[in-house]
């Protein structure tokens, strides 16, 4: 189940690929970052819409030149306390002007949903076994922020 930044739920159509042995490419796959680096050209030739996922210790700068050909970047939370995805989302949006979808995957917790959206994440892949209703509620928990959102929009923020 996916949660978007408006607090709405949607079915997840994507598959996160972890094992790329004898992989047949499909548009609904989210490909590992290393695999992408390795197979850039064949992937570009085979897929119209490219989705890749990054671990929290992957270098997003290495994506800089290819961002226009990528439609979805998923940022993995190996554990919820690893907060690098917040900065990675911020940089993708603000530094690189990434136009595609940014998604949080792995093990975020509902209480991080709003922080993620404020940093530029568009959708969250709700971890297996969690009640999506809690996520919906937390997605709009606060309506007062001391900081502007990553787009530098002042709506709901104090300054």
């Amino acid at each position: 189940m996916l949660l978007n930044d408006q607090g709405a739920l949607a079915e997840n159509q994507n598959i996160i690929i972890t094992n790329t042995d004898s992989l047949t490419l499909h548009e609904d796959q989210i490909l590992p970052f290393d695999y992408w680096l390795d197979q850039k050209e064949p992937i570009k030739q085979n897929l119209k819409s490219i989705s890749i996922w990054l671990n929290s210790d992957d270098d997003i700068d290495a994506l800089a030149n290819d961002l226009s050909s990528i439609s979805l970047i998923a940022l993995n939370f190996p554990k919820f306390g690893d907060g690098r995805a917040f900065t990675m989302a911020h940089l993708l949006q603000e530094k690189y002007g990434f136009k595609g979808e940014i998604r949080a995957i792995g093990h975020p917790i509902a209480d991080q949903a709003q922080f993620l959206f404020r940093c530029g994440v568009d959708s969250i892949d709700i971890p297996e076994g969690q009640d999506p209703n809690i996520w919906v509620k937390e997605a709009t928990r606060m309506s007062r922020f001391y900081q502007r959102s990553v787009e530098n929009i002042a709506a709901n923020s104090k300054y």
Partner: peptide, 11 residues
């Protein structure tokens, strides 16, 4: 105020 619930720096 800047640091209060700063979304990028809470974890």
């Amino acid at each position: 105020q800047w640091s209060t619930l700063h979304p990028e720096f809470a974890f």
